[in-house]
Design a protein around this nucleic acid. Structure first.
Length: 634
RNA sequence: GGCCCCGUAGCUCAGCUGGAUAGAGCAAUUCACUUCUAAUGAAUAGGUCUUUGGUUCGAAUCCAAACGGGGUCACCA
């Protein structure tokens, strides 16, 4: 409708305004609720052109458009805004059109280029936590949204399965695991612990032992004991100690941190971990076996968690297989002059012309850094998938700078696809008690949280749900669907870019702007439809009139395809969430005030049911894009 | 300190490609279940959109600065 009127105005621009107006000037918007009308044209931009009052200008345009478009029933100019009332027939015809489309709102499958979406990127030394939940739900939802927009999508995760941090948990397990009566160390099998939890436990143990050892060392230094330590260490310690003199609290704290780091580097534990990493890199069979075994425990654990989360991946990348990539590319770039070498042999890129700094891409000993790897993997992926057009990295916003640099490097290296790479940057999840910190034990475990949320849903649903005749399995599925729906919706309804507050009590709340609120509306519609099975709801409606609320609902349904487009453009599932909430609220208002099944006029009743069918269709479709399932009853 | 992000009701968030009287949910108060699922709906109250200046017919929205909060500036990943 909007498009149609815009075209008419452009086509007859000369006739109306005496010159060809620019498209930008024509601004349509939704009519405000308090005002009568369905569509509004802003008149201010035309006032100057027509050299008359807004009222006259609006009247002139309104009269003209009404002649051109028969769906306009009337128009009115209010303080510079031209409001059109569109005929009920128009809206009903829209409803009928929506009714015919099974996948309403979705673009044609595979009509747009192939995109890779990376999300999750866990470390294999600890279990997934709340931050991963936001990351995963977000990455999954964006993938689904892109698919709905016609893209083909490859969902991937990078598994950070190597490095010193992995060796830490391996070492701790070897050193500190108690032996059972059979002389075995702890395993998922003999403890019943989930693999990722068991490995995570030893990562924590490493940290504790490591800190304790460092503390002992510092205590020794403080009492002047430097046996087993080099002269350099002694000098450095004394230098730091003396520097504390007369400094404020903050500076002293910083110096204490430096002393701690100094001591940490002297611990036997860190040395042993480093030795283990070197052995791993040399593919020492024993270390490799340990590494494989423990990683497999973690993968088994992750599988369970991912399944509960309802996310999946099409392709896995392991850092252990890709961490050497990128070096050749850097050397090639060095020849091309993209990078430069410093005297010590380290390789850098100078981004000062782009307003950034110099960035290291290869250490002086020739080994790779994080950036090197990322350059290599990006290129590797485009080699793996020749049809690949772009890539989206779902990574926290603390890495904004890293990705800015990465994309810039790839661009400078001459990769045309670099401009199609983007960082889906999301904000941190805060708790009411503050930031999540693993060291302070304030990390919210993903499995625990999901369990808690499902337990709460179980309790609430047993209390007020409509569960008659459901088997225990069906009931459990429902509890799960409600609990997980609530959690996902809670994490996705907020703009991903922004940091968000996670209130555990609110996440399992069932009233207001929540997942269960939307699910409930869906179930209620399904209940109506079950009771009206005798009617032919496939058929289009012949109804001629609609109530205001009904018109509002149809207007929202009409918006759905553009909402999906916007969500893809913004890479924001929150757009979908907020739209669905609006739709559901409007429908509930309708449901509460207008008779549906008990309506006596059969044609009206049929229309209201057809409308309900389509509201349920859109709710279910929109929630599917968020990874949220909707129940038939609850 | 340099750079990046954020600041809207008591709390959590929408709105931000400039447009009419800034919207929801939670919390508070009130009303509506012999009527289609009340996990609902209706209503009341709650705002100098951090501040100041600028651009404009018009600014929560754009620009600049200040203040406040966070992130980042490793030969860590």
């Amino acid at each position: 409708m909007e498009q149609n009127l815009k075209e008419i105005l452009l086509k007859h621009s000369n006739e109306l305004f005496g010159l060809q107006v620019e498209e930008q000037l024509i601004q349509f918007q939704k009519t405000r609720k308090e005002v009568e009308g369905d569509l509004t044209l802003v008149i201010f931009p035309f006032v100057k052109l027509l050299r008359c009052s807004p009222l006259e200008a609006g009247d002139k345009i309104g009269r003209f458009l009404m002649k051109q478009n028969s769906s306009i029933e009337k128009y009115e100019v209010v303080s510079g805004f031209l409001n059109f009332v569109i005929s009920p027939e128009f809206w009903i015809s829209k409803l009928n059109a929506i009714h015919q489309e099974a996948t309403y709102g979705y673009a044609k499958e595979n009509s747009k280029p192939l995109i890779m979406v990376e999300y999750s990127s866990p470390n294999t030394n600890k279990p997934l936590h709340l931050g991963h939940l936001r990351n995963n739900f977000l990455g999954y939802a964006v993938s689904e949204i892109l698919k709905a927009n016609g893209h083909s999508v490859i969902k991937t995760q990078v598994i950070n399965d190597r490095g010193i941090h992995i060796c830490k948990s391996m070492l701790a397990w070897e050193k500190f695991s108690p032996l059972n009566e059979k002389g075995e160390r702890e395993t998922p099998q003999n403890t019943g612990l989930k693999g990722d939890k068991l490995v995570g436990k030893y990562y924590v143990i490493f940290d504790q032992q490591f800190n304790a050892e460092a503390k002992t060392i510092i205590t020794g230094w403080e009492s002047g004991d430097f046996t087993h330590f080099s002269e350099d260490i002694k000098t450095e310690f004394n230098r730091l100690e003396e520097a504390k003199e007369g400094k404020d609290e903050k500076a002293v704290k910083g110096l204490d941190e430096k002393i701690k780091d100094l001591a940490k580097n002297q611990t036997t534990l860190i040395r042993e971990a480093k030795d283990m990493l070197i052995k791993w890199e040399a593919r020492d069979p024993q270390v490799y076996l340990l590494w494989t075994t423990m990683n497999n425990w973690v993968y088994a654990g992750f599988d369970v968690t991912y399944k509960a989360m309802g996310v999946d991946f099409d392709k896995l990348y392991y850092e252990s297989e890709t961490f050497l990539l990128g070096k050749d590319i850097v050397l090639e770039g060095l020849k091309k002059g993209v990078f430069f070498k410093k005297d010590d042999g380290s390789v850098w890129i100078d981004l000062t012309a782009d307003g950034l700094d110099e960035k290291l891409v290869l250490r002086s000993d020739g080994t790779a850094v994080y950036m090197t790897q990322d350059i290599g993997t990006a290129i590797d992926r485009f080699n793996d998938y020749p049809a690949l057009n772009g890539m989206i990295y779902t990574v926290g916003n603390e890495q904004d700078y890293h990705f800015k640099v990465l994309f810039l490097i790839l661009e400078k290296m001459g990769y045309a696809w670099a401009k199609n790479c983007s960082h889906l940057s999301y904000g941190m999840v805060d708790l009411p008690t503050g930031k999540m910190k693993s060291r302070e034990g304030t990390v919210v475990d993903a499995d625990d949280l999901m369990q808690e949320v499902v337990d709460k849903a179980t309790e609430m649903t047993r209390e007020r749900g409509h569960l008659e005749g459901m088997s225990e399995n069906e009931k459990n599925d429902l509890f799960n669907l409600i609990g997980m729906g609530g959690l996902k919706y809670y994490l996705l309804k907020v703009d991903p870019k922004k940091r968000m507050m996670f209130n555990p009590d609110e996440s399992i709340e069932l009233n207001g702007n929540t997942g269960p609120f939307i699910q409930y509306t869906h179930a209620r519609i399904k209940s109506l439809l079950t009771k009206s099975a005798a009617l032919n709801l496939e058929q289009a409606t012949d109804c001629k009139n609609i109530e205001d609320v009904e018109k509002e609902i149809i207007k929202l349904l009409v918006e759905y395809p553009s909402i999906i487009e916007e969500a893809a453009k913004e890479q924001s599932p929150a757009v979908i969430a907020n739209y669905t909430y609006e739709l559901v609220k409007t429908y509930n208002n309708f449901y509460q005030t207008i008779p549906i099944l008990i309506e006596e006029n059969e044609i009206t009743k049929h229309m209201r049911l057809v409308m309900s069918v389509n509201v349920a269709k859109v709710i279910s479709s929109a929630m599917r894009l968020l990874g949220v399932k909707v129940p038939e009853r609850m």
